[in-house]
Design a protein around this nucleic acid. Structure first.
Lengths: 97, 97
DNA sequence: CGGTATCCTAAAGGATACTG
DNA sequence: CAGTATCCTTTAGGATACCG
């Protein structure tokens, strides 16, 4: 299960979703992550076959990320995990009330 | 997603499954985990509402763990994750051959 | 803009010995 | 048997400054 590795990779997968996002856009949507960690995670995810990285040799530089088929296949599973968490989180809160 | 916390909790959930297992049985099935870490993880999982811990005041002591409804609900999702991993692991190996 | 490089801290995980 | 207690190493993650 540690194929997901860090706590950030699932978040990044869900943020990118079926879109094509630039580095800055990803950073903006996960504003609590440091640039270094985001860079690290993105590089590892490319190595893991989760992401495709497209670099445009322009100035200023532009880099776009999309999910691979493997990454896309992970999306519904992560959604289930979110549902699971929300579902039981709610029950605990209600139980306390 | 870090509701799953450590790298061990999903493993423990899958090992216990729908059974009732003693501390030693869990340890034996995850032989690479240290006793301290297993103890830590089990305690946290009880706090998280994933596990039920039954302690029998005998000598020698006996402690049995079962999944809660919340823990059981996690099982099919973890199975999907395993399938996902196996599926794309295979493809990469084939691609190298 | 999208990174590196450097340094640092906190926390996860582990080895080993001991206990009720 | 099922833990505690203690100590230690490794790693994830972050702050900050600089670069092409």
């Amino acid at each position: 299960m540690s194929s997901l590795g860090s706590k950030w990779k699932p978040v990044i997968v869900m943020v990118i979703n079926d879109r094509k996002l630039r580095f800055g856009q990803i950073a903006a949507r996960i504003h609590v992550i440091s640039r270094k960690v985001l860079t690290d995670q993105l590089r590892e995810m490319v190595e893991d076959g989760l992401l495709i990285r497209e670099e445009f040799k322009e100035l200023p530089p532009r880099v776009e990320y999309t999910l691979t088929e493997k990454g896309l296949a992970l999306l519904p599973i992560l959604n289930l995990l979110e549902d699971w968490e929300r579902n039981y989180e709610t029950k605990e809160v209600l139980a306390e009330a």
